Amino acid sequence: KRPMNAFMVWSQIERRKIMEQSPDMHNAEISKRLGKRWKLLKDSDKIPFIREAERLRLKHMADYPDYK
Rank of each mutant, 00 (worst) to 15 (best):
L56H: 05
D43S: 08
L56C: 05
Q21T: 11
E20L: 07
P23F: 00
D43A: 12
F49K: 01
H60M: 11
W38Q: 00
P23R: 02
R15F: 04
A62T: 13
H26Q: 15
E52S: 02
S22R: 08
L56M: 15
L34N: 03
L58F: 11
R33Y: 08
K68Y: 10
L58M: 12
K36A: 13
K36G: 05
P65V: 11
K46P: 00
E52A: 07
W38I: 00
R33S: 11
S11C: 08
E54L: 04
M19P: 01
K17M: 05
R33D: 15
E20D: 07
M25I: 13
S44H: 08
S31M: 14
H60W: 10
K1T: 05
K32G: 05
I47R: 08
L41Q: 01
H60E: 14
P65T: 12
N5W: 04
A28Y: 15
G35M: 15
P23E: 03
N27W: 13
L56P: 02
R55K: 11
K68T: 04
V9F: 04
L41R: 00
E20W: 03
K39F: 04
P23T: 03
I50P: 01
W38E: 01
P48C: 04
K36E: 15
R57F: 14
G35C: 15
P3I: 05
K1C: 08
K39R: 09
D43F: 11
I50G: 06
I47P: 01
E54F: 03
K59G: 12
I18M: 09
R15C: 05
E29Y: 02
K46T: 02
E54A: 06
L56I: 10
L41M: 14
K42M: 04
E52H: 02
I13F: 08
A53N: 07
K32E: 15
D66L: 10
H26N: 15
K32T: 10
L41D: 00
K36F: 12
S44T: 10
D63Q: 10
A28K: 11
M19K: 13
Y67I: 15
E52M: 05
M4E: 08
F49T: 03
S44V: 09
S31A: 15
W10I: 00
R57P: 08
Y64K: 15
R16Q: 13
M19A: 13
K32N: 10
V9Q: 02
L58R: 13
Q21N: 05
D63W: 09
E20T: 06
I47H: 06
R2Y: 05
P23C: 01
P65R: 09
L56E: 08
P23D: 03
K17W: 01
F49Q: 00
K1P: 03
M25R: 03
L40N: 14
R2W: 09
I30V: 14
A62M: 06
R2P: 03
Y64A: 11
Y67Q: 14
W10F: 10
K1W: 06
S22V: 07
I47M: 12
K42G: 07
K39T: 08
R33F: 15
M8G: 14
Q12F: 04
F49H: 10
R37V: 09
P3S: 10
L56W: 03
P48E: 09
M8F: 10
P3M: 09
K39A: 15
N5Y: 04
G35I: 15
R15D: 02
K46G: 00
V9Y: 03
D43P: 10
M4G: 06
R2K: 10
G35Y: 15
M19H: 05
R15Y: 05
E52D: 08
V9E: 01
L41V: 03
E29M: 08
D66M: 09
H26F: 02
A6K: 01
R15P: 02
F7S: 14
N5R: 01
M61K: 13
R16F: 05
K1S: 13
S22H: 13
Q21L: 06
Y67K: 15
R16N: 07
R15S: 06
V9R: 00
K46I: 03
S44E: 15
I50M: 10
G35S: 15
N5A: 03
H26R: 13
R2G: 10
L56N: 08
R37T: 12
K17H: 05
K59V: 11
M4F: 13
H60N: 11
Y67T: 10
M19I: 13
K39N: 09
L41K: 02
S22L: 04
Y67H: 06
K46W: 00
R57Y: 04
I50T: 06
A6Q: 03
D43E: 12
I13M: 08
R57A: 14
R37F: 02
I50Q: 13
L58H: 13
Y64D: 14
K17I: 09
A62F: 08
L41I: 05
D66E: 15
D24G: 10
W10C: 00
R16V: 11
D63T: 11
N27L: 10
D63G: 10
L40G: 11
V9A: 04
L56Y: 06
I18S: 02
P48D: 04
G35E: 15
S44I: 14
A53M: 03
K39G: 11
I13Y: 04
K17V: 06
R33P: 00
I13E: 09
R55L: 06
K59M: 12
G35R: 15
W38G: 02
E54I: 02
I50A: 09
K17F: 05
R57M: 10
M25V: 10
F49R: 00
D66N: 12
H60D: 13
S11V: 03
A28M: 06
S44Y: 02
D24N: 10
M4Q: 05
E29N: 02
W38C: 01
R2T: 04
K42W: 01
E54W: 02
D43Y: 13
E54R: 04
L40P: 00
R57Q: 08
I50K: 05
L34K: 00
D63S: 10
Q21S: 09
A6R: 02
R33W: 11
A28L: 09
I18P: 00
K39Y: 07
K36P: 02
A62V: 10
I18R: 01
L41G: 00
D63C: 05
W10Q: 00
M61P: 08
R55F: 05
I18K: 00
L56R: 07
Y64Q: 11
H26M: 09
L41S: 01
E54C: 05
W10T: 00
R55Q: 09
Q21P: 01
P48Y: 03
K59E: 13
I18F: 06
M4Y: 08
P23M: 01
I47G: 08
A6I: 01
I13G: 08
P3N: 11
R37E: 14
V9N: 03
K17P: 00
L34A: 01
S44Q: 12
R15W: 04
F7L: 06
R33C: 14
A28W: 07
H60C: 08
N27E: 15
R15N: 02
Y64I: 11
K46M: 01
E29W: 01
M4C: 02
W38M: 00
Y67G: 15
I47V: 11
A6P: 11
I50Y: 14
K39I: 05
M61I: 08
P48W: 04
Y64H: 13
P65W: 04
D45S: 05
E20Q: 10
D43L: 10
I50V: 14
I18V: 04
D43C: 05
K36T: 13
K46Y: 00
E54Q: 12
R16A: 13
A6T: 01
F49S: 01
M4D: 07
Y64G: 13
D66S: 12
P23W: 01
S22M: 07
M19D: 04
R57L: 06
M61R: 10
M25G: 02
L58T: 11
Q12E: 14
S11R: 03
S44L: 04
R37Q: 11
I47L: 14
I13Q: 10
Q21A: 09
A62C: 10
S22E: 13
I13K: 09
R16L: 10
P3L: 08
A28Q: 10
S11W: 03
H26D: 15
K17C: 01
L34I: 11
P65L: 08
G35W: 15
E29V: 02
P65F: 07
G35V: 15
P3E: 14
E52K: 03
G35D: 15
H60A: 12
K39S: 13
M61W: 08
Q21R: 07
K42S: 15
R55E: 06
Q12K: 07
N5V: 01
K42D: 07
L34Q: 03
I13S: 09
I47E: 15
I30C: 07
N27M: 12
I47N: 06
V9M: 07
K59W: 05
L41W: 00
K36M: 10
D45K: 04
R55S: 06
K39P: 01
E52P: 00
D43I: 08
M25D: 05
K68S: 09
K32Y: 12
I18D: 00
F49A: 03
K36H: 10
R55M: 08
K17T: 05
I13D: 03
I30T: 02
W10V: 03
E52I: 09
S11E: 13
L34D: 00
E20A: 07
L41C: 00
I47C: 03
